[in-house]
């Protein structure tokens, strides 16, 4: 099995994000592996441990994203490649997916690609479905369990979360999976892993290395633009504190919720 994990570097979830001069800022908060992607990395490593083969982590992003790729190596991925080119800037979900799909195509031997459910910065959740559409691979989103996998028979069976509960489905390899949190418990990087990752040289592929015309990627190759980004209007503190005995409080709350037709 050759599994590709597509990851993104994002600010930490506790970061205080803001906008200055039209650009998103996050102060001195750490840049981390997108938390959803940790489940993708863990699942890929578990597949390798069970079925053999290797795991390649790829990420489209700036030079700094090499740090996130090093975290992937430290956790147990075998190799990592940064997809970086000034021409990639301003890519919408489909343009981003086209870069990832081109890299997966160049790697050639992959059986599966795994991504997190969404990135905590853009929050679009479109990557898996777009990569699957571009590669023509089986699309399997919101996967909460890989129940069966038979690399020789090129088949797998997964459980997918949807509104009503879980859908169990069988599909063929190659497949693109997006995974949700209850699929596993991501491991911490080992001491040996961190040492190995620190020394790793991470190759960098630009548009030309992927055989891509710069006009088809980045802002030039994207149909969706985001002309504005801004913090939402601050919520005004508007709390009414209810006190008394529990019974008195319950009565006061019921009065208010029913008067306002909330209940």
């Amino acid at each position: 099995m050759h599994v590709i994990v597509c990851i993104k570097q994002t600010p930490d979830t506790a970061a205080r994000v803001d906008v200055k001069d039209g650009h998103v800022t996050w102060g001195d908060a750490a840049l981390v592996v997108n938390p959803w992607d940790e489940y993708a990395i863990e699942e890929a490593i578990r597949l390798k441990e069970k079925h053999g083969g290797k795991v390649t982590a790829i990420s489209m992003g700036p030079e700094s994203a090499k740090e996130a790729l090093k975290t992937c190596l430290a956790m147990g991925c075998d190799e990592a490649i940064l997809l970086s080119d000034p021409a990639f800037k301003g890519s919408d979900a489909t343009a981003t997916a086209s870069v990832l799909a081109a890299a997966i195509g160049k790697l050639g031997t992959a059986d599966m690609a795994i991504v997190g459910k969404q990135a905590i910065d853009g929050d679009t959740g479109l990557t898996a479905i777009a990569v699957a559409a571009l590669l023509g691979w089986s699309p399997l989103t919101f996967v909460s369990k890989i129940a069966e996998l038979d690399p020789a028979a090129r088949s797998l069976q997964v459980e997918r979360l949807q509104e009503e509960g879980k859908q169990v489905c069988a599909a063929r390899l190659p497949a693109v999976l997006s995974v949700v949190k209850d699929i596993n418990e991501p491991r911490y990087p080992s001491f040996m892993g961190i040492r190995k990752a620190a020394k790793a040289v991470i190759p960098q592929w630009a548009a030309a290395d992927l055989g891509m015309d710069p006009a088809t990627v980045g802002a030039a190759g994207s149909t969706v633009k985001w002309p504005a980004i801004y913090p939402p209007p601050a919520l005004e503190a508007n709390v009414e504190m209810l006190d008394g005995t529990p019974e008195e409080i319950a009565s006061k709350l019921a009065d208010r919720l029913m008067a306002n037709k909330v209940i």
Partner: peptide, 9 residues
């Protein structure tokens, strides 16, 4: 975006 901490158009 950013879990609702920012809004994009």
């Amino acid at each position: 975006a950013y879990a609702g901490r920012l809004l994009s158009t």
